[in-house]
C-alpha cells in the first residue's frame, strides 16, 4: 500500500510541473508590460526599466520560469502589489475559507448525490425516480449565482433563518454554531450542481450493476432487497462513482468562486476575481497554481481510496 501511494505521488510530479508551465505560459501571454501596470501610465521609462530588472522581467522566458518555479518551491510566491503582502500568506489565509465551504459542499453532494442516485435506480420509473430525475435536471440547469441570490432572498431576507452573507458574525462569538449558520446556505448552493451530476451518474452506474449476474446471485441467496441494493449493488457501483467524485471535487472547488462572491465568503475564488480585475498577476498566478496543486493531491487521495475499495486494483 505504501509503495502504491509513493508510486502515485511520484507520478503526480509531472502533472504538477505541467500545471505550473501552463499557468506560467498563460500569464506570459499577457499583453503590455507588468511594470507599467504596477507603476501606472505616468511612470518614467527609467523607473519602468528598473522595476523590470528587479522583477527579473528582462530575462528570457525559460530562465524566468525556472526562477519562478525555484522561488515557489521555497515557498516564495512573490508579493501581491494590490495587497502589498506575500502572495502565499494571502492565498493560505483565503484558502482556509474556501476549504471549509468546498469541503462541506463536497460532503453534502457526495452523500446526497449517491443516495438520490441509488434510490432513483432502485425505484426506476417509479414516483421517487421521476421526482429525483426532475430535481436533478433543475439542479444542473440553475446557475449557482442565481440560486444563491434566490436563497438569500427567501431564507435570509424573508424568513431570516440564516444570515445574509459572510463567514462570521461582525459582532459576537466566532463559534461553531455561528459558522454553521453562516455556512448552511452557501454550502447547499455550491453543492447543488455537483449533487445533480453525482446523482445522475450514480443512477446509471447502479442500473448497470443491478443487471449483473452477481446481483441475481444475491437475490437467489435470499438476501433482503435492501441489502442487495445498498450492500451488493452500491458497493460495486462505487467503483465507477468514485472517479466522478474526484472530478466533481474540482467543480466544487472552482465553482466556489460564484458562491463566494454572492455570499461575500472570504475565499480564494473571490480573491482571484478581485486580483484579475486589479490585474494583480502574481496573486492570480500563485492562487491558481496553489488551488490546482491541491486538486491534484485530492485526486491522488481519490485514487488511493479507489484502490482500497477495489481489491482487483494491484497496489
Amino acid at each position: 500500500m505504501a509503495g502504491y501511494i509513493l508510486n502515485r505521488l511520484v507520478s503526480a510530479i509531472p502533472v504538477l510541473l505541467g500545471i505550473s508551465i501552463i499557468v506560467f505560459l498563460i500569464m506570459a501571454m499577457i499583453p503590455g508590460d507588468p511594470a507599467t501596470a504596477i507603476l501606472g501610465s505616468y511612470a518614467t521609462p527609467e523607473n519602468v526599466e528598473k522595476l523590470n530588472r528587479d522583477l527579473g522581467l528582462d530575462k528570457p522566458l525559460v530562465q524566468r520560469y525556472f526562477i519562478w518555479l525555484g522561488n515557489m518551491l521555497q515557498g516564495d510566491f512573490g508579493r501581491s502589489f494590490s495587497l502589498n503582502r506575500p502572495v502565499l500568506h494571502e492565498v493560505l489565509e483565503r484558502f482556509n475559507g474556501t476549504l471549509i465551504l468546498a469541503g462541506t459542499s463536497f460532503a453534502i453532494c457526495s452523500i446526497l448525490g449517491i443516495a438520490a442516485g441509488t434510490v432513483s435506480a432502485a425505484r426506476q420509473y417509479g414516483l421517487a425516480d421521476k421526482a429525483i430525475t426532475f430535481a436533478v435536471l433543475l439542479g444542473i440547469s440553475i446557475p449557482s449565482f442565481f440560486l444563491g441570490m434566490m436563497m438569500i432572498l427567501i431564507f435570509a431576507v424573508n424568513l431570516r433563518w440564516f444570515p445574509v452573507s459572510g463567514m462570521w458574525p461582525i459582532y459576537g462569538a466566532r463559534d461553531l454554531s455561528s459558522l454553521i449558520s453562516h455556512l448552511t446556505l452557501p454550502a447547499m448552493v455550491l453543492a447543488t450542481v455537483a449533487t445533480g451530476v453525482i446523482a445522475r451518474l450514480s443512477r446509471s452506474a447502479m442500473l448497470e450493476v443491478l443487471r449483473q449476474d452477481f446481483i441475481r446471485t444475491a437475490r437467489a441467496k435470499g438476501v433482503r432487497e435492501r441489502s442487495v441494493i445498498w450492500r451488493h449493488a452500491l458497493r460495486a457501483a462505487m467503483v465507477s462513482i468514485i472517479p466522478v467524485l474526484g472530478v466533481q471535487a474540482g467543480f466544487v472547488l472552482s465553482g466556489a468562486v460564484y458562491v463566494e462572491i454572492v455570499f461575500q465568503w472570504p475565499g480564494v475564488g473571490r480573491m482571484l476575481v478581485d486580483a484579475i480585475l486589479k490585474r494583480d498577476i502574481l496573486l492570480v498566478q500563485g492562487g491558481v497554481v496553489f488551488v490546482a496543486a491541491c486538486y491534484v493531491m485530492f485526486n491522488l487521495a481519490v485514487d488511493v481510496a479507489q484502490s482500497l475499495l477495489d481489491p482487483r486494483i494491484k497496489t
Binding site: 502533472v15 500569464m27 467543480f251 465553482g255 482571484l272 492570480v284 491558481v288
Partner: peptide
Amino acid sequence: AFPYILLALAIVAAL
C-alpha cells in the same frame, strides 16, 4: 488536472 473554472479564470486574467 485543473479545476475547470479556475483555468477559465486564468485565461481571462491573461486576456
